[in-house]
Simulated scan of single mutants.
Amino acid sequence: MTPERSVGVASQIKQRTIVEQIMEKVKELIVKDRLKPGDRIPTENELAQMFGVGRSSIREAVKVFTYLGVFESQTRKGTVLNDNTSVSSEALTWAFLLCEKDFVSIMGFRRSLEQEAWIDLSRRYREGDPGIQEVLDRMQVQIRFMETALAENRILELNEADYLLHRIAIAEMKNGPMLALFDTLRSFTYEEMRVSNTYRTDLARVIPEHQAIIDAVKNPDPLAAFYRFREHIDTTRDRIVRKQD
């Protein structure tokens, strides 16, 4: 590597380090000043003076925040803080994509993400929530899709119905960030299904497992659906481990 090339690389590394430090400082500023969605972010000049760095570095940091959906540029107000529904899940998607494809670890994350949804559905059923039956009916539609797809050997459609059934449960939590996280796992969930359901005997077990979870929502035991869901995830994990051995 020539000296000129070496200096150029060092400059890039230094610049990246500065931008990362600026992003940390901006996050601290948001917390310290208790900024809310819609609040104005200081201008590039103001941030440069606060942090004692050049405007070019500030501009790069703002670009990253804007790409991630954290900031939004408005004509009259300037740069403002977005709400959490606008934050892109792109970064998290790439983080999962670029890491080692450890399906067992990802399934553990998914179990933690989803289990509260089944507990909440059970609670709503016990409390007589008038909307809960419509939710269970939509899940039963996905069960029927799975049965038809299995009978006609349309495995991709079976996996789609499987995914949508679980997504219905998550969506009922009315928690935007949680649903976004689940959607981020979509490609991994499909691959998990493909690996765990290699044989037709595996596929035949999947539908009763899901039906048991739905039926457990109506059980007087508030944790029955949670236990059935956990049993389903653990069984799927065991099938994956056997295939990988």
Rank of each mutant, 00 (worst) to 15 (best):
R194I: 06
Y227I: 06
D120H: 06
E46I: 04
H232Y: 08
T189E: 10
I30H: 00
L98N: 11
M178K: 02
T198Y: 10
M146H: 01
A224I: 04
Q115K: 14
A117Q: 02
E114P: 00
S88H: 08
N153C: 14
D162P: 00
M139Q: 09
K25E: 15
R16P: 08
Y125D: 05
V87S: 03
L35T: 03
E116P: 11
E90D: 14
Q49P: 00
L203R: 05
V241H: 10
E46H: 10
M50I: 13
E160S: 07
P3K: 09
H166D: 08
R167L: 07
S86A: 14
M178H: 05
T236P: 07
A91C: 13
L121G: 04
G108R: 04
G69F: 01
R194H: 11
V26N: 08
I132H: 02
M146C: 04
L165R: 04
G8M: 11
R124I: 05
L68N: 10
R186I: 04
G8A: 12
A117T: 06
R186C: 04
M1A: 15
G108L: 04
Y227H: 12
M139W: 06
A224F: 01
V53H: 07
I155W: 05
M173H: 08
I170R: 01
R124V: 06
L29P: 02
G69I: 03
S105W: 11
C99E: 15
A91H: 09
S187P: 09
R239K: 15
T198G: 15
F96I: 09
L165P: 00
E90G: 12
L181D: 03
L203A: 02
K101G: 13
M173L: 15
M1S: 15
S187A: 13
E116K: 13
Q21D: 15
I18R: 05
L203S: 04
L121E: 05
D238L: 13
R55G: 09
A117E: 01
L68G: 08
K218V: 05
L150N: 09
E134C: 11
L164K: 13
D183P: 07
T2E: 15
V141H: 12
T2W: 10
Q15I: 14
T75N: 13
Q21M: 13
P222G: 02
V53F: 06
